[in-house]
Simulated assay, not measured.
Amino acid sequence: MSNMFTSRNPAGVAVAQTGAIFGVLAAGAVNAHMSGIAAARAARESNNSIVLRHQLNIAIDRAQQLCDLATAQASEIEQLKAENARLRAASATYLAAARRKAAA
Rank of each mutant, 00 (worst) to 15 (best):
Asn84Gln: 10
Glu83Tyr: 01
His33Asn: 14
Val15Cys: 09
His33Leu: 14
Thr6Ala: 04
Leu66His: 01
Val24Trp: 11
Ala103Ile: 07
Met1Val: 03
Thr6Glu: 10
Asn84Arg: 09
Ile77Val: 12
Ser46Leu: 07
Arg99His: 08
Asp68Asn: 13
Ser49Arg: 05
Thr6Leu: 08
Ile21Ala: 02
Ile60Asp: 03
Ala85Glu: 06
Ala96Leu: 07
His54Ala: 11
Ser2Asn: 14
Arg86Thr: 03
Leu66Gly: 00
Ala29Lys: 03
Asp61Arg: 01
Leu66Trp: 00
Arg99Asn: 07
Leu95Glu: 12
Ile50Leu: 11
Met34Asp: 07
Met4Ser: 12
Asp61Gln: 06
Arg100Phe: 03
Leu95Lys: 13
Asn31Arg: 15
Glu78Phe: 01
Ala59His: 01
Tyr94Trp: 13
Ala103Leu: 09
Ala97Val: 15
Arg8Gly: 05
Cys67Gln: 14
Ser46Val: 03
Ala89Phe: 01
Gly28Asn: 08
Gly12Glu: 09
Gly12Ala: 05
Tyr94Gln: 15
Gln55Asn: 05
Asn84Leu: 05
Ala43Pro: 12
Thr71Gly: 04
Val15Arg: 15
Glu78Met: 02
Ser35Pro: 04
Ile50Asp: 10
Gln64Asp: 12
Lys81Cys: 01
Ala38Phe: 00
Ala72Arg: 15
Arg41Tyr: 06
Ala32Phe: 06
Gln73Leu: 03
Ala74Met: 08
Gly36Tyr: 00
Asn3Gln: 14
Val24Asp: 12
Asp61Phe: 03
Ser91Phe: 09
Arg99Thr: 11
Arg8Glu: 12
Ile58His: 01
Leu87Gln: 15
Ala43Lys: 06
Met1His: 09
Asn84Trp: 01
Ala16Met: 02
Tyr94Gly: 02
Arg88Met: 08
Gln73Pro: 01
Asn9His: 05
Val30Gly: 00
Tyr94Ile: 10
His54Thr: 11
Pro10Lys: 00
Ala16Lys: 00
Ala14Gln: 05
Arg86Cys: 00
Ser35Gly: 11
Phe5Asp: 15
Ser49Lys: 09
Ser75Gly: 08
Ala42Tyr: 09
Ala14Arg: 08
Ala97Thr: 11
Leu95Phe: 15
Ala38Trp: 01
Gln55Gly: 03
